[in-house]
């Protein structure tokens, strides 16, 4: 192989190994991979303590249970009040009718 052929081979090698751009969007993909490495503002670091997480979960459970219990109590109290009102109304009607009957009886006996 003479010098001219050698030069030609090296020239072809240089052309073959020229720099190539990566596929489109390369920079965006690199920057996207940087994102998860940044510290997140939330959740707060103290929330990572397992004992605190358990305490928060327990407090939440107790609050839900107490809320349910109080709701039941309130409903029962309202139902009782409604029943009492109905009884009072019935008594008032009965009392009025008794008074009416008594007045009629008195009227007949006077005659």
């Amino acid at each position: 192989m003479d010098h001219r052929q050698e030069d030609q081979f090296e020239y072809q090698l240089k052309s073959a190994l020229h720099r190539q751009e990566p596929p489109n969007g390369f920079t965006v993909r690199v920057l996207a991979r940087l994102e998860p490495a940044r510290p997140e503002p939330w959740p707060q670091p103290w929330l990572h303590l397992p004992s605190l997480r358990w305490a928060l979960a327990c407090a939440l459970g107790i609050a839900v249970f107490a809320g349910g219990w109080m709701f039941q109590q309130e409903r029962r109290r309202a139902e009782g009040e409604a029943a009492r009102q109905q009884v009072m109304l019935a008594l008032r009607i009965t009392g009025a009718k008794m008074q009416l009957a008594e007045a009629r009886v008195r009227h007949l006996s006077e005659r």
Binding site: L17, H18, R19, Q20, P22, F26, T27, V30, L31
Partner: peptide, 22 residues
């Protein structure tokens, strides 16, 4: 600054990618 870093990437991406590709 992300924009500075993006400029660095764009300036040298062909060199780094081609080294790995070749």
């Amino acid at each position: 600054r992300t924009s500075d870093f993006a400029e660095l990437v764009e300036a040298h991406q062909a060199m780094v990618f081609s080294l790995a590709y070749h």
